[in-house]
Design a protein around this nucleic acid. Structure first.
Lengths: 138, 138
DNA sequence: AACAAATGTTAGACAAACCTAACAATAATA
DNA sequence: TATTATTGTTAGGTTTGTCTAACATTTGTT
């Protein structure tokens, strides 16, 4: 198990993974655009992720994700999606608001609380959806 | 309405407020100890908070909170307590785990989602506590 | 009051993230 | 293919937040 990534590096890794899954190839410029950062910042981040062996990367080379990187990326994306579902379907938040908060909280929420949110959402969906829907949601 | 504080400065302000309420006086060393940072770091933070007129502070002087600082501190603490309640009573998390996550998330959660969490917790407490208690919580 | 201990401040470093501007390499197209 | 456009890299800055070590001030104790 490698040392924990910073929020920023998690964002880069997550983005790289999503682009990779979609295009089967990753260009630094796409990462920059997706995250709204400069090409220079992306280069720096790529170096750090490569150092941690989460991506394959070399000067002017194509970028790809390692086995380890994929595992780490999936974990983050799983948190993201679970939070998204909770915010939208349990709390009734709008897509954009839910996305914004999931993007931030996914990096700092603990395993324990994350598991509880997931379990709660599941239980809620199965048992209480309609009741809450009319009384609580907007 | 002043510009938004960083997570770090919010932590300092929150801590100062709590110490102030408890002791009616605030010493920098207490802030350092509460946050687990060096005295030097606290001095820096105090300067920044004073610049933003959230605390009264001068070299070697006693520290106190301004009207504006108190309002800002209360907002943060309100978020903290609301998250704490949600984690403990809705999700059934342990005190320490709930505290840790509240301390982190209070700085980044949006107003919209925060309000929804508060409303949900209230509604849940009033209507569903017992049912969830046995089926969901640990 | 004098000394010692505690507290507060400053100076100087460092790490993480970001930026812009200049330059290098690759890709696209006339 | 030669030229232009795009993309990638580097160098050098900035901001935020932290630290340690040295020094200044205040407080507490004989």
């Amino acid at each position: 198990m490698s040392e924990k990534l910073t929020s920023s590096l998690e964002d880069y890794l997550e983005t790289i993974y999503l682009i990779y899954k979609k295009n089967n190839t990753v260009k630094a410029i796409d990462v920059s655009r997706a995250l709204g950062v400069s090409r220079a910042s992306t280069t720096e981040a790529l170096k750090k992720l490569a150092e941690k062996k989460l991506i394959n990367y070399g000067r002017y080379n194509a970028i790809s994700i390692t086995r380890e990187g994929e595992i780490a990326a999936k974990e983050i994306i799983n948190k993201h999606n679970s939070l998204l579902e909770f915010f939208k379907f349990v709390l009734g938040a709008k897509e954009q608001e839910a996305q914004k908060n999931a993007c931030a909280i996914e990096h700092i929420i603990s395993e324990d609380i994350m598991q509880r949110v997931i379990a709660f959402t599941k239980y809620y969906r199965n048992n209480y959806k309609d009741e809450f829907k009319n009384k609580f949601c907007t």
